[in-house]
Simulated assay, not measured.
Amino acid sequence: MRLFSLALLVSTWAWACSALVIDTASLGLHDNQLAQHADPSLAGYLGVFFLGADPYVYFYLSNGNNPISFKALNKGSPIFKPTKGTGGVRDPTIVPGGGSEAGKKWYIIGTDLNIGKTTWDAAQRKGSKGIFVWESTDLINWVNESLVVVEDNTAGMVWAPEAIWDPAKGQYLVHWASKFYPTSDPNHIGNPSSIRIRYAYTSDFRTFSTPQTYIDRSPTNIIDLTILPLNPSNSSSQSFLRFMKDETLKTVFVETSTTGLFGTWTRAGGSSVIIQSGVEGPAAYWDNTTPGKVHLLLDFYGSDGYRPFESSNPGSNSGWTQSSRTGWPTGLRHGSVMAVDQGLYGRLSSKWG
């Protein structure tokens, strides 16, 4: 009986290890793949945020290659303010150029919303249908401000737009959150649909394809989607992580796909496992020097804004730990972080440091 139990234990242990390897592979998290994320050419990080009472674009630069220690640029003043729409921009995200624009162009897109001029109810019923866009070829000069309408009049709002280069399509996939009202309710006074994630494709952030639904978890409301390539050093990789907020339960969780942006997405741990509750606006970025580590900013919107978390198993909803906040600024709200090389780091520091 003892020998049988030992054999069974060894057999079970071997099966579990085998299953673990299979599961890890299915998530695209091989050690050799994760090792590619550490890049010695990267010298730091650029953070793009808005501040609670100030819906404008602010830049923060990391202190060297420290991913959780940042300083305000431009003496803490906005890099720019919108002149169109509501005059306020929330949720700014910086989009690195893809394809022929890689390393040559960057975009900042954001939500057209100044909550100081409206209410949260009105902002969801009769909010802006457009997204702000700025572009730059050097991260210093931001030009061609535009407010591009992406939804029709049945939409109540367009919130938290982000974009990612889709290697399968050869265009940028732009996504945002919207809710909709029936055509029989043109004044949007009745009950809307649940909030879902919508998307469109663009090559220039001026002309967009007809929007379609990307994520619909009705009756659950989903907002604040952000997508992180699992293998950014491979421009043709079809493996991604996507973080989003369950607006109904006020939680953030992560899903993984190794079959493209429209492939099969898996939520590790099941449909009820989360990273954190009482937060929104997830912003994820790879560590420049530690292979396999991802940093995740979560906006504690009822408190002090963004707090940094980290994990070396980013495809999992468990195991995320709070990072040290010794060098982390308070009051930063929903935005994004992008790694920069020494040339860009020096340029940003010289201009606004």
Rank of each mutant, 00 (worst) to 15 (best):
T154E: 10
P161Q: 07
V148D: 02
E151S: 08
W134F: 08
A160C: 09
F132T: 01
L147H: 02
V148M: 08
N153E: 15
V150K: 01
L147G: 05
E162N: 13
A155G: 03
W142Y: 11
D152H: 05
I164W: 04
E145T: 09
V149I: 13
S136E: 05
W142V: 09
V148A: 12
E145A: 09
V148Q: 14
V158P: 04
P161M: 08
A163G: 11
A160G: 06
D166Y: 02
S146V: 02
N153G: 12
T137H: 13
E145M: 10
S136D: 10
S136R: 05
L147Q: 07
W159A: 01
V133N: 03
E145V: 06
E135T: 14
E162Q: 14
A155T: 04
W142S: 12
D166P: 05
D138I: 09
V158Y: 05
E135N: 13
S136F: 10
D138H: 10
V158Q: 02
L147W: 02
N153C: 06
A155D: 01
N144S: 13
K169M: 13
P161V: 05
A168F: 11
W159G: 00
N141A: 12
D138R: 06
K169P: 02
L139Q: 07
T154A: 02
T154H: 10
V150H: 00
W142Q: 07
A160Y: 08
M157F: 15
V148R: 12
P167Y: 13
L139N: 09
A163C: 06
P167Q: 09
A155V: 07
N141S: 14
K169T: 15
K169L: 08
W165H: 03
S136C: 10
E162D: 15
W165D: 02
V143M: 04
K169V: 14
W142I: 08
V158D: 00
P167M: 06
D138W: 10
A163V: 07
V148S: 09
I140R: 12
D152N: 15
W165Q: 02
D166I: 02
V149Q: 10
A160Q: 09
L147I: 07
M157H: 15
W134R: 12
V150Y: 00
G156M: 03
A168L: 13
V143P: 09
A168R: 08
V133C: 05
P161G: 07
D166V: 04
E162T: 14
D138T: 11
V158T: 15
T137D: 14
N144Y: 11
V150R: 00
A163F: 01
D152G: 13
A160L: 09
P167D: 06
V148C: 04
T137S: 14
D166M: 03
E151M: 14
S136H: 12
P161W: 01
P167G: 04
T137Y: 09
I164E: 07
S146A: 15
E145F: 11
W159D: 00
I164K: 07
N144C: 08
F132G: 00
G156Q: 03
W134S: 06
A163H: 05
A163Y: 01
D152C: 07
D138F: 08
P167F: 12
T137R: 10
D138L: 05
L147S: 07
P161C: 10
N141L: 08
V149W: 00
D166A: 11
E162K: 13
I140A: 11
E135L: 07
D138C: 07
I140T: 13
